[in-house]
Computed example of a mutant assay.
Amino acid sequence: MGIAAAALWLPPKRDGAHSAVAEQRVEGNVARDLGHPRLPVADDISPPEMAVLAARQVLHGSGVAAADVTLLLHAWMHYQGHDLWSPAHYIAHQIGAHNTVPVGIQQICNGGAAALELAVARLSLAEGSRHALVTTADRFTAPGFDRWRSDYGAAYGDAATAVLLRQPADAGDPLLLRALHTAAAPHLEAMHRGMDPFARLPRENSPVVDMRRTKRDYLRDHGVAPFKKINREMIRCVVQGALRDAGLAADDPRIRFVLLPRLGLKTLRNAWIPTLNELVAARPVDWGSDTGHLGTGDLPAGLHELLRRSALGPGDIGLLLNAGAGFTWSCAVVEAPAPR
């Protein structure tokens, strides 16, 4: 499977951690643990409109016409601007992808990875040349969401991403998708439900999305140690599964790095990096300090950043990790193709 192009669209405005601490919008120790000096903020544009801009960048960069996109999957975790409405169809409409089948994906923070995996499965079933466009977009605005305080271990930045997949891969594709392995622990859905009853309307149980509160309820009954154990096991599962699917050994020198999800610095250092150091020889890298967590967009944003930095030479390989509420974990293996 070829990755023809990837884009990350960020708004120009930033919310600085120093200002957030000074204005008592986040505790100083929390800001230090998160390690994000600033977060991107989209005041004047909706998430689907951001996704349109990212999608247009990808199509322009790849030279692929919107009419040639046969599948469009849009992933999101927070409100998209209208009720009982399909943002995926809006994006297809706005970019002129009138021959596509638009599909919405809601798998919380792992949505971008899930959309890529579903796109691969759909393209693999089709005959002839096909293109699939995966977009993500989220805007975490007050008063319904507190980007600094709504969650533990993550601060949320506004952004959109787009990735164009091609089947079969073309000689000009800058990346090949070698594997994408996913695993889940469904019983952990209760961490984002807590003790709340099922509501009749959005935010009836709380005026602000408050994942800290539901996680506290869950951890009070179940403890922290079982979750930490499952997280380590699932990271191990998806990394080993992705390497196995790609036919790679954990110490293969072609693997240049393992790209971490865009979570807080303390979370990465305590929960992710030690586990990865036991699994692979390649170094873990964090490219998310200036954006924070992008909702569904972490893994697609990583693909964009990988290309922007020219981080892989011909024949080199990178691993990209992602996780989201539910809980679900994914690991992608990409390769920069050697010249033919």
Rank of each mutant, 00 (worst) to 15 (best):
P226W: 01
F145R: 07
I45C: 13
R283M: 12
Q107T: 07
A5E: 02
L276C: 06
P37L: 11
R256I: 00
A162M: 02
R178A: 15
D151M: 13
G288M: 10
G16P: 10
V103R: 10
D217Y: 06
W148Q: 06
T161Y: 08
G241I: 11
P174R: 00
R139Y: 09
D15G: 04
A160C: 09
G128E: 09
M211Q: 08
P87D: 11
T135W: 14
T328C: 15
V280E: 03
L73T: 07
S206D: 07
A51K: 11
E233V: 04
P226I: 04
E27C: 09
E189Y: 14
G194K: 04
P274S: 05
G144Y: 15
D43E: 15
L73V: 06
E335K: 10
D68Q: 14
R340P: 15
S310I: 02
R254P: 00
L73A: 13
A132K: 07
W9D: 01
F140N: 07
R139C: 15
P37R: 11
G223D: 08
D316N: 12
V103M: 11
D15Y: 04
S124D: 14
G297E: 12
T136D: 10
A246L: 05
H89M: 13
W76P: 04
G318T: 06
L133N: 08
N231F: 13
A65P: 02
